Amino acid sequence: MRVLAAMSGGVDSAVAAARAVDAGHDVVGVHMALSKSRAEHRTGNRGCCSVEDGHDARRAADKLGIPYYVWDLSDDFEDTVVSDFLSEYSAGRTPNPCVRCNEHVKFAALLERGLAMGFDAVCTGHYADLRTVETDTGARHELHRAANHPKDQSYVLAVMGKQVLGNVLFPLGSVPTKDAVRVEAAARGLGVSLKPDSYDICFIADGDTRGFLRSKLGENPGEIVDESGNIVGSHLGAFAYTVGQRRGLGLGIPADDGQPRFVTKIEIETNRVHVGPVEALDVHRIRGGSTVWLAPDIDPTAPLRAGVQVRAHGREIPATVQVIDDQLVMDLDEPLRGLAAGQSAVVYLGTRVLGQATVEDTE
Rank of each mutant, 00 (worst) to 15 (best):
R188Q: 09
V70M: 10
T80G: 07
M330W: 03
K151D: 03
W293L: 02
L349F: 02
E223G: 00
V164R: 15
L213D: 04
L332E: 06
I204H: 09
R113A: 12
A5W: 07
R42M: 11
Y89R: 09
L281A: 01
S215N: 12
D331P: 01
R214E: 14
A357Y: 03
H104E: 14
D331E: 14
G24T: 10
L172M: 11
A23K: 12
A17H: 10
R214M: 10
F77A: 09
T358I: 11
G342Y: 12
L110Y: 08
R46T: 01
D257V: 09
I286P: 06
N220S: 13
G218Q: 10
S8W: 07
F212W: 13
C49A: 15
V321C: 07
E316W: 00
L236I: 06
V156Q: 14
A185E: 14
A23N: 13
L130G: 01
L115I: 14
D297G: 10
N220H: 14
L236P: 02
A57D: 01
A240Y: 01
M117G: 11
P150S: 04
H274V: 07
V181N: 00
A240E: 15
L169P: 01
E227W: 11
A186K: 15
A39L: 07
V321A: 11
A128G: 13
V192H: 02
N96C: 07
G248R: 14
P277H: 08
V283K: 11
H25W: 09
D326E: 14
T270P: 02
P300F: 08
H149F: 00
G342E: 11
E316S: 09
V133R: 15
G342S: 11
H41L: 08
L213E: 00
L236K: 15
N96F: 11
V28I: 10
H235E: 12
V3A: 15
D79G: 09
A187S: 15
P67R: 12
H235L: 11
L165V: 08
V175Y: 01
V225W: 04
A5E: 14
E360L: 12
D26H: 13
M1E: 10
S344H: 12
G47E: 02
A17F: 05
D256N: 13
A108G: 02
G161P: 14
V11F: 02
I324G: 02
A340L: 02
N148G: 00
S234E: 13
Q309N: 05
V243P: 09
R100K: 13
